Amino acid sequence: MSVDASFEQLGDFLRACRARVGPEEVGLPVFGRKRRVAGLRREEVAQLAGVSVDYYVRLEQGRGQHVSDAVLDAIGRALRLDPTEYEHMWDLARPTRVSARQLAPSTARPGVQVLLDRIDAPAFVLGRCMDVLTWNPAADAVMGLSAMAPHERNMARHTFLSPDADRFYPDWERVAADTVAFLRLDAARHSHDARMAALVEELSAGNPCFRPLWDAHQVAEKTHGTKRLRPADGTVLDTAYETLSFPGDPDLMLVVYTTAPRTARVGAEPSVTAARP
């Protein structure tokens, strides 16, 4: 995503957030006549943020190259952004340029694999764009990663492009929304990453459910949560997960599913046959 595209995304994000905030939530009077827009009007956001309507309109039009820190803070408060949304707004307003040597690694260092192999629960490492870089036998038993083609070892591709996804994820709609919300966050943090832009286009073309979720501009961290999985043997696993970042490699995440031992099948041969997108 180019710098200009980042400011355009900032405008889209502000419009989406504005539509999600009702006037009553921010103490504005609501009159009897029907409002023509969902959420706040642009002039109401400008009033709450203490800026001119023209200035705020320019931001929503993608002309936010010189927005000040104070204005960003004020708009964040006016739109009642949560900490993750607030950070996302700043990432879009302050796009960074980095050299190729600063890009995230495409593989995990050997010591990480040693760590994975010592974890009894299903565990794997995610890289940029939600690529699965490496995993342990327990994760392979549940997800069938070693049976997948290398380009298929990507959580977003598997969610939206695999014909097996709605069986593997019984709560597919929730998983899909969570996946897109994290991709949105990651894309803003790395506006230079052409691979992310290509992935978004691939998912948009490959699944009609993706684009509406992407255009909703919801953002969420992938820190912890719960997920329901159904491996090839038909067992439904209700599992929690935790994620940890690696010091020195902040774009890599260790994901651990805290599945019950009887269902994790630690050390079993891969049982999920990869479905080709």
Results as ranks from 00 to 15, higher is better:
residue 1 M to H: 11
residue 3 V to E: 14
residue 3 V to A: 09
residue 3 V to D: 13
residue 3 V to C: 11
residue 5 A to N: 10
residue 5 A to D: 15
residue 9 Q to C: 06
residue 10 L to A: 11
residue 12 D to E: 14
residue 15 R to S: 11
residue 17 C to Q: 15
residue 18 R to Y: 12
residue 19 A to Q: 13
residue 19 A to T: 10
residue 20 R to F: 09
residue 22 G to K: 15
residue 22 G to A: 14
residue 22 G to S: 14
residue 25 E to A: 10
residue 25 E to Q: 07
residue 27 G to S: 04
residue 27 G to N: 00
residue 28 L to K: 10
residue 31 F to E: 15
residue 32 G to W: 11
residue 35 R to K: 09
residue 44 E to Y: 10
residue 46 A to K: 02
residue 49 A to W: 01
residue 50 G to T: 06
residue 52 S to N: 06
residue 54 D to P: 08
residue 54 D to Y: 06
residue 55 Y to S: 03
residue 57 V to C: 02
residue 57 V to Q: 10
residue 62 G to H: 05
residue 68 S to M: 00
residue 72 L to I: 12
residue 72 L to A: 05
residue 73 D to C: 05
residue 74 A to S: 06
residue 75 I to E: 03
residue 75 I to C: 13
residue 76 G to R: 05
residue 77 R to Y: 03
residue 77 R to W: 02
residue 80 R to E: 01
residue 82 D to I: 03
residue 83 P to F: 00
residue 88 H to K: 03
residue 94 R to E: 04
residue 95 P to M: 01
residue 95 P to C: 03
residue 98 V to W: 03
residue 99 S to E: 10
residue 100 A to Q: 09
residue 103 L to I: 05
residue 109 R to V: 08
residue 110 P to W: 03
residue 112 V to T: 07
residue 112 V to F: 04
residue 114 V to C: 11
residue 116 L to G: 03
residue 118 R to T: 08
residue 120 D to E: 08
residue 121 A to P: 03
residue 124 F to S: 06
residue 128 R to F: 00
residue 128 R to V: 03
residue 135 W to Y: 00
residue 140 D to C: 06
residue 141 A to V: 03
residue 141 A to P: 01
residue 142 V to A: 09
residue 144 G to T: 02
residue 149 A to I: 04
residue 150 P to W: 01
residue 151 H to A: 10
residue 151 H to F: 07
residue 154 N to T: 00
residue 154 N to I: 01
residue 155 M to P: 00
residue 155 M to F: 12
residue 156 A to Q: 00
residue 160 F to K: 01
residue 160 F to C: 02
residue 165 A to I: 11
residue 167 R to V: 15
residue 174 R to N: 15
residue 178 D to M: 13
residue 185 L to G: 04
residue 187 A to E: 09
residue 187 A to M: 11
residue 188 A to P: 09
residue 189 R to L: 08
residue 189 R to N: 11
residue 191 S to E: 02
residue 193 D to P: 05
residue 193 D to R: 00
residue 196 M to P: 04
residue 198 A to W: 05
residue 198 A to G: 07
residue 198 A to P: 05
residue 199 L to A: 06
residue 202 E to W: 05
residue 203 L to T: 01
residue 203 L to Y: 04
residue 207 N to G: 09
residue 207 N to K: 08
residue 210 F to C: 00
residue 211 R to V: 12
residue 212 P to G: 06
residue 214 W to P: 00
residue 216 A to Q: 09
residue 216 A to G: 13
residue 220 A to R: 15
residue 224 H to G: 07
residue 226 T to K: 09
residue 226 T to N: 10
residue 227 K to R: 15
residue 229 L to S: 11
residue 230 R to W: 10
residue 231 P to W: 11
residue 231 P to G: 11
residue 233 D to C: 08
residue 234 G to P: 09
residue 234 G to S: 13
residue 237 L to T: 05
residue 237 L to E: 14
residue 239 T to H: 07
residue 240 A to W: 12
residue 240 A to G: 15
residue 241 Y to T: 02
residue 242 E to F: 06
residue 242 E to G: 08
residue 243 T to F: 05
residue 243 T to S: 08
residue 248 G to E: 11
residue 249 D to L: 15
residue 255 V to K: 01
residue 256 V to L: 07
residue 256 V to Y: 05
residue 256 V to R: 02
residue 258 T to D: 15
residue 258 T to Y: 12
residue 259 T to M: 08
residue 262 R to I: 04
residue 263 T to Y: 14
residue 263 T to M: 12
residue 264 A to S: 14
residue 264 A to E: 06
residue 266 V to N: 13
residue 266 V to K: 15
residue 267 G to M: 12
residue 269 E to H: 13
residue 272 V to C: 07
residue 274 A to P: 04
residue 277 P to H: 12
